[in-house]
Structures are given as structure tokens and as C-alpha cells.
Design a protein around this nucleic acid. Structure first.
Lengths: 335, 335
DNA sequence: CTGAAAGCGCTTACAG
DNA sequence: CTGAAAGCGCTTACAG
């Protein structure tokens, strides 16, 4: 797409130029104008009792006249906490990460927290820089989708009291709560079992796997697949494990199990109307409009976000105890 | 989907309970430990010149021993700005709003800004509360996707120096920069023209409109459609303007122009394999997998976000002048 | 009912 | 090269 943009100045009806104003009024200014002490302004602003109606009116008048709005950052500096949480996602264009944010924000809003956020594109360096920048601003808590690699940089922060919850993928660090879908835990293959069992029920016996090219996580998926095949009473040809989209059309498999949305799309594009059943991890918008129909293993990412938020708030409320591992159920969306 | 989640405590291998630590070391603590004045610690931390290597080493040692990390919020309070921008979106599950965030974050990261963010679900009250909460934290700038209604609550903030840019939809307030796709400006119907002209080229003469049910924006779309029909030399039946998904199947139209992604999906679901051509605003992931193929009018939301960020930075750098209206081009994705 | 002082954790302006 | 004091905009603890 073209990067060209068009700029038009003014609308012909506007009041004038935009210029940066100078200096906001402070409580001190309000106090001077109202002829009271700083502390009295503070009392009025905080609705503390023990101020006569007349004084209150004078102060409120001065606030109105000056357009005073309290500097929350200054208040929070004195108070010790910041009423801020941070969220570090992979990417805003990944629907799961965006949906986790929605769930987290719901909880944050209800409890008066504001959110810092940023994305890493799965770059560990960006993850660390973002997390430490948020900690330097003294966020009360952090929700992180961990990139590949250790999270040791967080240990001093956690010890200093930053509540931390990892979501969506298991972290290496074992000193924080986690909220994961039931498909990524090493000892639980609920997702793979659901999918393979469904295909077996439909009569499929030759089921291929379209996974990640390589890396530490591809092994977990493969063993999950193997386990699920065995559980369904099926044997798997080693060749079915090493599939990529191009090889797919040349095999004898009648169904293919895909690691994620991108793989589902690759399989559909490679196969065309060949009658091979496609199933995989991750539902997506308007998936119901695709022919042939594609069944998916799905979970509720919004629930992951809200659960992470609630875990965070409980820790901030003082809950002690070992790290919690919360599993969000997966389900089959049959099409 | 079930709301049931499973919690497991501990992993059997962890070092112990999670507990909130107490108190971070401050510069004062570092100064005491290093046997220097506060100001000297500040010099070392800020890499100011004029500190002997020996003193520097003592201070760095104390920082290391204590695990000191400067409180950025306190520094910024003194400095006067916050190096923070705010982004207020409709919803994180709307791909356009998430993509705008990506573009904005790219610019923010390069320039050392952190981002507050929140979503409104198109609720004006939430928009106002979020924006004012961010201003109370003294964000330097704000990027807002405006909900229905006036944005007058922002006037004092803009006058106090909060740089503001509206994105995606035109605001009522005329005192801020805007970055909009070329389809929503009242005097520019590029998007509608592109779509209708394309259909006319394919030989369609009876083209329906599947728009918003009602409201102030449905009128704009209808006149855009009418204008585009006239520009293509076609006449439009009033009945084709009042379509909903259910009525669609009963009309004689051979093509239908849809206001947004949701309408595209409704049309496809209602029509099935009926041979009516569907076209509309808004591309989406895996749209190429849908049969019959659907052509869309699209734009680059990431570019909207980065452009908004650059506009913001220019204002923060002191640029004066009338509000700028930036238009991001739309294009046809033919399928 | 109201206020003067000290402090949150840092930087700025000035002195030695 | 180093430091003591004042201040960013607020709240806390105490006094009258």
C-alpha cells in the first residue's frame, strides 16, 4: 500500500492555531487565590470533613476560576503506589493478545487502575526494556506474554514487590503466577486430544501434523500429537509429522491438524478443494464463511486477561503463597 | 464458552512463596552507603561529567549492592514532562484499532515514550473518563478514536498543553489534528467511488447498499453511495438503500456494497452461493479463503497510527499553526 | 475548623 | 570535583 498521505491545513472555520499552553495551576495557586492554606485546598479536593461550607465554596470557586486539576502523578508519588498496571503483549495485530488486553482492562477499570502497555513482536530485548521501563515508573503489577528466553531480569522487581502474572505461554521463571490455555502445558494435551479424537470419530485414520518449523515448542506439539494419536488408538507415520504446506498435497493423509491460525490458512491455500479435512488451534473472525468448513480448537482469551487481572489484584491485596497456575479450558468449535 | 478455570498451586520445584517486598532503595540510601552526597549519586546516575573515577566506582558499587533503580516517576515530576502518550481506542478486538496502536507504538518507542492506553467500546462516558484520567497523570499527548458526541471536555486540557490527535473517525472538536482514512471525510468519497466504479466496470447496474441501521453516520454513507452511483452513470432504486441482510435475498440487485466487515459477513451469510457479488469496507485476515471471493476497500491502519504519533511529536516539539487534517489513501483489494 | 512543617524521590541552581 | 539547599505538586503527621 502507498505510504503517501495528504495533509490539509485548517478547516476554514477553526478558531485559530494550536499552541502549547504554559503552566497548569497548582494547589498552591488555588490556596493563594482562595486565601487559605494549601492543606485546606487538599481537604476540599479530597472531600475530607471539617471544612466550613463557606471555606469550601471559596476554594471550589478558586478551583473553577483557575481550571485547576490535581496532578495525579504527584499525589501518587507521595502515596507510594501508582494505581497502574502494565501489559506486555506479543503484537497488537494478534487477536489473542488484543483480547487478553480487553479482559485485563475490564478488571483494571473496575478497580481504578490505568494501564501502561507495549508489544514485543516476540523480541526478548524489547520485552526486557519494556518491563523495566514500566517498573521504573513503578507500576504496581505486570502482565506479560513471555518471549523466548529467561525472565531473570524480573527477579529484583518481583522481590521489590511488583506483582507479576505470565499469560498465554509458559515462562521460564517459576516465581510468578501464570494463566495459560489448557493446550500449552507440558503435562496436559487437552487441545490436541480434543482435535484428534474428533477426527477419529469422523473416521479419519491418517492424520497429519502441520506444526512449527523447528524450535523448542515444536517438540511439545509433536509429542502432544503423538500422545493424542495413541489415545485415539491410531498409529502415526513419521512422514506425517514433518509436513509443511507444500508437502501436504502429496501425502495420503485425509486430515491435517494445524499448530495455529497461520498454519490453518497455509493448509487451506495449499489444499484447495481437495477434500482433506483441516483442523487446528485458534479460532478467527468469519472462519464460518470459509469453504470447506474448518473446525478449530479454541479458548477464551478475554477470560485469560481478566483472570490475570484478578490474580494481580489478589497479590496486591497481600495474598501470599506459592505461584498459581491457572488453566483456561479449551473447546472444540465444530464446523 | 465455560467460565470455569482450574488453579494449581505451586510446581513442586519453586523456591517458595510469593510475597510483596518492602521498600526500594532510594538515591539517599545509595548516597549514605557510598559516603557521598545525594547530588553525587545523581551525577553518576545521569552520567554527568566531573566525578572522579574512584567516587564513581564507590557509587556504582553501592547501586549494585542495594539493587537501586531510579524512580522515573519522581524524576519526571521534577522535570515537568512525563514522556508518556495516551491512546484511546474503540476496542482491542477491532483489528483497525489494534493496528493503529501498533503504528503509534512504533513511533513512541523510537522516541522514548511509554504509552497509557484504554478502550471505550464507543461509550462517550468511558472516553471522557479515560482521557481525563490520562491528563491527570499528565500525559504529554493523546491519540483518540472519538466516540459519538462532543469532545469539549478536552478543551482545557488542550489549552494546558496536551497535544491531541484524533484518528479513524472525524471528531466534533475542530481544535486538534486528525488522521483519517480517505473514506470518512464528508467531502471525499474516494472509498465509495472505488467500489462502485469497480462493480460498474464488471457490468453491474443494480447495486445495493448494506449500511448502518440508522444514526448520523448512515446518512454520510448513503450520500457517498448515491454520489458514487451517479459518478458511475448508474441510477439507484430507493429500495436498494434500505437493505438489511434479511431483505437482501429478495431483491434484484446483482451486487451489494457493505458499510463494514460485519455487514460483509452478514451479506455473505444471508446470500450463500447465490451469485450476488459482495464488496465492502474493511479487509480482514484470511478474507482470501472465503468463497465466493469478496473484494474490499481497504487502508493501512498502521500508517494512521504512526502518522498520528509523528503529528503528536511535532506539536510537542513546538510546532504551531492550524489543525492538520491528514488523509490516508484507500485502495481496492480485488479478489 | 485551619494551618505550618516535613517529606515522597528525584533535579535544578548555586556555592565552595 | 563535591555538596547543602530549595523545589516539582502533592500528602502525612502534628499543632493550634
Amino acid at each position: 500500500m502507498s505510504n503517501q498521505v495528504t495533509t490539509v491545513n485548517g478547516s476554514g472555520r477553526v478558531s485559530g492555531d494550536i499552541s502549547r499552553g504554559g503552566g497548569r495551576p497548582t494547589m498552591k495557586d488555588v490556596a493563594t487565590r482562595a486565601g487559605v492554606a494549601l492543606k485546606t485546598v487538599s481537604r476540599v479536593v479530597n472531600r475530607e470533613p471539617g471544612v466550613t461550607p463557606e471555606t469550601t465554596q471559596r476554594v471550589l470557586g478558586a478551583i473553577e476560576d483557575l481550571g485547576f486539576r490535581r496532578n495525579e502523578s504527584a499525589r501518587l508519588l507521595r502515596t507510594g503506589h501508582t494505581a497502574t498496571l502494565g501489559y506486555i503483549a506479543d503484537s497488537w495485530t494478534d487477536p489473542d493478545h488484543a483480547a487478553v488486553y480487553r479482559g485485563l482492562e475490564n478488571v483494571a477499570r473496575e478497580h481504578g487502575y490505568l494501564l501502561y502497555s507495549g508489544s514485543t513482536d516476540r523480541d526478548r530485548g524489547r520485552e526486557e526494556r519494556l518491563a523495566l521501563a514500566m517498573c521504573a515508573r513503578r507500576v504496581d503489577g505486570l502482565v506479560i506474554s513471555p518471549s523466548q528466553g529467561a525472565q531473570d531480569y524480573l527477579i529484583p522487581e518481583i522481590e521489590a514487590g511488583v506483582a507479576t502474572v505470565f499469560v498465554l505461554r509458559p515462562p521460564e521463571l517459576e516465581r510468578a503466577d501464570t494463566v495459560l490455555p489448557d493446550i500449552v502445558l507440558p503435562d496436559q494435551r487437552a487441545g490436541a486430544r480434543l482435535a484428534i479424537a474428533h477426527l477419529a470419530r469422523l473416521g479419519h485414520r491418517k492424520i497429519g501434523l502441520l506444526g512449527e518449523p523447528a524450535g523448542p515448542r515444536s517438540g511439545a506439539l509433536r509429542s502432544g500429537y503423538a500422545e493424542a494419536m495413541a489415545a485415539a488408538g491410531l498409529t502415526s507415520d513419521p512422514a506425517w509429522l514433518a509436513l509443511d504446506a507444500a508437502a501436504l498435497a502429496g501425502t495420503s493423509v485425509t486430515a491435517v491438524f494445524c499448530a495455529n491460525r497461520e498454519r490453518i490458512a497455509s493448509a487451506l491455500r495449499a489444499l484447495g478443494p481437495r477434500g482433506v479435512t483441516v483442523i487446528g488451534f485458534g479460532d478467527f473472525k468469519f472462519a464460518d464463511l470459509i469453504t470447506p468448513p474448518v473446525t478449530v480448537v479454541s479458548y477464551d482469551p478475554v477470560l485469560i486477561g481478566s483472570t490475570a487481572g484478578e490474580l494481580l489484584l489478589r497479590r496486591l491485596a497481600g495474598e501470599q503463597g506459592p505461584p498459581r497456575q491457572v488453566r483456561v479450558p479449551v473447546r472444540l468449535v465444530v464446523r
